[in-house]
Structure formats: structure tokens, C-alpha cells
Amino acid sequence: MEDMNLIVAPSPHLRDSDTTEKIMFSVLISLLPVIGASFYFFGWDAVRLILLSSATAIITEYAFQYIRKIPIQIGDGSALLTGVLLALCVPPSLPSWMVIIGSAFAIGIGKQVFGGLGHNPFNPALVGRAFLTASFAAAMTTWTAPFDAVTTATPLVLGAARSSLPDLFFGSVAGSLGETSALAILIGGIYLFYKGVLDHRITVGVLGTVVIMALLTGQDPIFHLLAGSVLFGAVFMATDMVTSPITKGGRWIFGMGIGLIIMLIRIWGSYPDGVTFAILLMNAVTPLLNRWTRPRIYGQGVKVSE
């Protein structure tokens, strides 16, 4: 028999077919309904912001990897995902140069300075959003109505009494590009759950706590779920694997913490929404949650018979 050139490697010799690239692209696919809705409601502004933000994210990722002389991994889809997510959570009227700065900041400062994929403590897209909110407060809070681009107030500012629930559900309200249509977000969320990428503990933790807090404070829970960034945050932002806990118990606490902070900010804080800061704050607590919620190891704490 001719030389077989066998590969010798330690066990196991089988690997699941799922890959990190596939996970990133399945999140991108799950965002398609949201992207579609943003185009339907806000037209070419959606295309402009999503393209600019994605391209900037990929170029920034490439530049950092090039400068650091590490393998170029822009093909893994993670930078593209950050770019798309950032675009979907800014106002439709945001000037182009601002989204470019925000996206570069998200990848550069939010991700690459920590070592790139997997090493960032904070959700990069939200780092970008927080940076834009702090730097360009006016532009980041100028909202336009769907279809006709007239400046208007968001439902959170208008309040529950002056908002229509069907409009909130389908997305025909003022708000960030991808955050207005609850329906589109839910479709994406169900797809992600089905693909095993979305951990229900986080999403349910966030939404459940928002509902409970609303009921406790005598507010409309459905309104709080549908208005602002709650649903988008609970489905696409809080569930970011890199920045959420690795234990099941930790994920429940993480989700509930986000829900709690959102409602504290909404009811008593000076921001109308608060989802960005709620998630970023809980991102900071993630390592601690991992430590607190370590599962009991098999056989530990079990008595050895004499």
C-alpha cells in the first residue's frame, strides 16, 4: 500500500458541523426582516446607514488586524454584524459622517483594543451607540416619522396614552432604524432561537422583568415592551454571546438586571429609553456573574462512604 500520510491528532476525532462563522451569519440572516422593515419605513436612509456602517466596520477591523500583524479574519462575519447592528439602532436622519465615526469607534475601541473577537467586555455596537449618544446628543435624539421624514417625537416621549399599539407592533412609529417594528424583531428572534443561537434565559429575563416592573409601577407593560429599544435589545443586543454570561443561572440574572435597569432609567432617569446603558452596565457585571453562578461540579460536595 502506498504511503497513506495519516493525520495523527488527539481525540476527539469528530467535530460538529456548526462554526462561529455560521453563527455570525445566522444572526445576520435573522436581521433581514428588521432590515426590510427599516427600508419600508425609512427608505433610502436605511440603505445609506447600513451600508456605511457595515463597510466602516469591516475596514476598521481589517486595519486593526493589519497593523497588529495578526491573521485577517474579516470573513468571520463578526465585524459586519457589529456594523449592521449599530446602523439599526441609530436615528434614520443621522448624518453619514457620524455613523462612520460611530462604527469605527465600535470596532476600534469597542472590540479591537481588547484583542478582537471574543475578548471585548462590552457589546461593540452598543459601545458605538453610547459614544454617538454622548458625542452628538442632538442628532442622536432627532427622530423622524416613518414614510415622510418629518421630525417628530418617539412613543417613549409621547407616552402610552398617545401611542397606538398596532403601530408600535408593526413599526409605523418614529424611532431608531431597526427598532420600531416589533413584528420584524420577533420573526428574527424566533429564527435565532430555532437555530440555537439565542438563549431564551436572557431574552425572557429582560422582557419578563420589564413587564413586572411596569405592573408594579402602574404602567402599561405592553407599551413598555413595544416602545423604544427593549425588544431589539433583548433579542439582538443582550444575547451577544461574547458579552453575556456563560452559565445558565448567570444568564437569568443578567437578563433580569437589564430589565430592571431599563425600567429604573425609564421611570426615574433622565433618558427616555435606557436600554443601551442597561445592557452595557450588565456587560460589566458579566465576569462577576460567571463567578457567582458556577454550577456544582459532578461529584463535588458528595460524601465518600467510609
Partner: peptide, 29 residues
């Protein structure tokens, strides 16, 4: 095809290893 050494990417903390571990360990840690 089954034997090829796969391309290794950074850990994204998806915690699938935590979910499968029969000894309840945190393999990524």
C-alpha cells in the same frame, strides 16, 4: 475530509461546551 485539522477561531463564549459538559465544568475557563 473528516480528518482535516479545522481552522481555530477565538472563543466567542457561546458556552456550548458548558451546556454539554457531563461533569458540569466550565471547559472554556
Amino acid at each position: 475530509g473528516e480528518s482535516a485539522t479545522p481552522n481555530v477561531l477565538p472563543c466567542i463564549k457561546c458556552a456550548r461546551c458548558v451546556d454539554v459538559c457531563p461533569a458540569n465544568l466550565l471547559p472554556l475557563k
